[in-house]
């Protein structure tokens, strides 16, 4: 059986491994391997990064193990391994020194490999609603509980203007009331 599953991004929710960052922070990136070629031009940026920035990176992030793996005439690659067992491979062919730094920063701050996934919500909350989820009974008119169905009064459309008959009837009633009041005054 064939599926189109590979065509779609896997939907995911934002999660934090064991409340990371509450109280203490554990860097989820455990190991990073920079693979590069010593001669080839496509590795130039990564070589520059190693020459100028890598020591700073390693000093600043003592919790991340950094390996360097020179290999002849093959493209430059960053391999990241996370605490949850994920590993992520970033191809940095012809990337500049700044781009490598940005990739490494991304890998360092991520909680795992999120490639091929789509976030269903850009936020997360442990308490989605204080008043509780909606049900068909919330905001329901309690008078409906006692109504008999089918009900002519509940079937009538709302916001209807008065008919001529009703208006005439009202006028007539007003007239009669005023007549009664006048006659009582006379007495």
């Amino acid at each position: 059986m064939t599926t189109n599953k590979s065509l779609f991004l896997i939907p995911k929710f934002i999660t934090t491994p064991s409340q990371n960052g509450v109280g203490r922070y554990v860097c989820q990136l455990q190991r990073v391997v920079l693979k590069f070629c010593k001669n080839h031009g496509s590795s130039r940026g990564i070589r520059e990064f190693i020459e100028y920035d890598l020591l700073n990176f390693a000093n600043k992030n003592p919790e991340v193990v950094v390996y360097l793996k020179p290999r002849r005439h093959r493209g430059p690659v960053i391999k990241a391994e996370y605490l949850n067992g994920d590993d992520q491979i970033v191809f940095c062919h012809n990337n500049t020194r700044e781009e490598i730094a940005k990739w490494l920063n991304l890998l360092r701050t991520q909680s795992g490999n999120h490639d091929g996934t789509r976030l269903r919500k850009l936020w997360h909350t442990d308490y989605p609603s204080i008043q509780g989820p909606w049900t068909p009974y919330t905001f329901r008119d309690p008078a409906l509980n006692l109504a008999e169905f089918p009900n002519e009064e509940l079937s009538r459309p709302l916001d209807q203007p008065k008919t001529a008959t009703e208006e005439l009837d009202e006028l007539f009633k007003k007239q009669q009331e005023s007549e009664v009041a006048e006659s009582s005054e006379v007495k």
Binding site: A147, F149, P150, L154, S155, R156, P157, L158, Q160
Partner: peptide, 16 residues
Amino acid sequence: LMGNVSNQIRQIRPMP
């Protein structure tokens, strides 16, 4: 069936 009913949908036009 009628015993299940708990709401009436209002008509779109008034019945003269």
